[in-house]
Simulated assay, not measured.
Amino acid sequence: MKNSRIIKKNYEFEKIITKKNFLKNQSFVIYSIKNNENILKYGISVSKKNWKAWERNKIKRQVRSIIWEYIKTSENHSVDIIVMVRKEFEKKSFNENTNEFIKLVNKLRK
């Protein structure tokens, strides 16, 4: 079954990033754009420069988990987001990263 919430295509990433509507903190940079589908769609970007492949995969799994927990506990959004993970992510606990993500996404709603 295809997950319709995931953004994978390069042109979709570029479309969102070129709008330059972003928020950032120590762990994340989140680019966003409104959509008409009444669901939160997401893409995750982890730099090859900072981590090895197994570390990037672990980080993506953690970020996916954070996003799914957020989706379960909040009402639907009409927004597409690209989550870029920064180097500080690995220095913080999972709960701290979760709280930082939730703060940023809640700022997007305003």
Rank of each mutant, 00 (worst) to 15 (best):
K19H: 14
K20E: 15
F22K: 12
K24Y: 10
K24V: 07
N25S: 01
Q26C: 14
Q26T: 13
Q26D: 14
S27K: 05
F28D: 09
V29S: 10
V29A: 05
I30H: 03
I30E: 13
Y31S: 05
Y31N: 14
S32T: 14
I33C: 10
I33Q: 09
I33Y: 05
K34L: 15
K34P: 15
K34W: 11
K34E: 15
N35L: 04
E37D: 06
E37I: 06
E37Q: 14
N38C: 09
N38L: 06
I39G: 05
L40C: 08
L40K: 00
K41G: 00
Y42K: 06
Y42Q: 06
Y42A: 00
I44D: 12
I44V: 13
I44W: 05
S45Y: 11
S45T: 15
V46L: 04
V46A: 07
S47G: 00
S47F: 00
S47N: 05
K48M: 02
K48G: 02
K49C: 03
W51V: 06
K52D: 03
K52P: 06
A53R: 09
W54V: 02
W54S: 00
E55R: 10
E55W: 03
E55A: 09
R56H: 01
N57P: 01
K58G: 01
K58V: 03
I59L: 08
I59D: 01
I59Y: 02
K60L: 04
K60P: 04
K60C: 06
K60S: 07
V63A: 08
V63T: 10
V63G: 09
R64G: 13
R64E: 03
S65M: 05
S65H: 12
I66N: 00
I66F: 02
I67Q: 00
I67Y: 06
I67V: 15
W68R: 15
W68Y: 14
W68E: 14
E69A: 10
E69I: 02
Y70R: 10
Y70F: 15
Y70D: 13
